[in-house]
């Protein structure tokens, strides 16, 4: 009989299709694992409403668990509580930086219009002298920055709260 802990370990082998350095557990989209009589239920939550990766993540979870011999898997998508970048694990943040994506920083409320912009350190040289190019980057979850010192253009995994 498979344990809940084991399933969590299996989920550590399912990667986010858009940021393949993170597992779905690192990303914090797995809300709950429930054991059922002859299988399990996995509750996941989307990062963004229109995130095209969610269907893929669902399929990948089915595939991975089937590979581990768990056939009856139900994946449920819930919207509340809404995902926040605070749920990205510390290991996840470290992996992001090593991959060249600046992890989310503490940001002021997005509804405050004229606040000072958040300082996002360059993932390559750690300089704090960087500039925002666009609030919207290569995917919904990222913004586009550039380092003023080493000139590296980089993605920033923007804070969502």
């Amino acid at each position: 009989m498979v344990t809940e802990k084991q399933i969590w370990a299996y989920l550590e082998e399912v990667f986010d299709p858009e940021v393949p350095v993170l597992t779905v557990v690192d990303l914090g989209v797995v809300q709950k694992v429930e054991l059922k009589d002859d299988g399990c239920k996995i509750v996941i939550t989307p990062t963004y409403s229109g995130c095209p990766a969610m269907k893929r993540i669902e399929d990948d979870i089915h595939e991975k668990l089937a590979e581990k011999g768990i056939e009856k898997v139900e994946v449920e998508l819930v919207l509340s509580p809404a995902w926040t970048t605070d749920w990205i694990t510390e290991i996840g943040k470290k992996k992001l930086k090593e991959y060249g994506i600046a992890p989310p920083e503490d940001e002021v409320d997005k509804s405050v219009l004229f606040a000072d912009p958040t300082v996002v350190p360059c993932p390559k040289c750690d300089s704090r002298n960087t500039k925002l190019i666009s609030q919207f980057g290569s995917t919904a979850c990222k913004a586009h920055y550039q380092c003023n010192d080493c000139l590296e253009p980089f993605d920033y995994f923007k804070c969502l709260r």
Binding site: S49, A82, D109, S111, L113, F136, L160
Partner: peptide
């Protein structure tokens, strides 16, 4: 209505970004 509340909670986070972008 819990479903409406959940959709609003999820969408509000995105909408704040949208509003900031268009306002700027």
């Amino acid at each position: 209505d819990e479903t409406i509340a959940a959709i609003a909670e999820k969408s509000l986070k995105e909408t704040k970004y949208h509003f900031k972008h268009s306002s700027e």
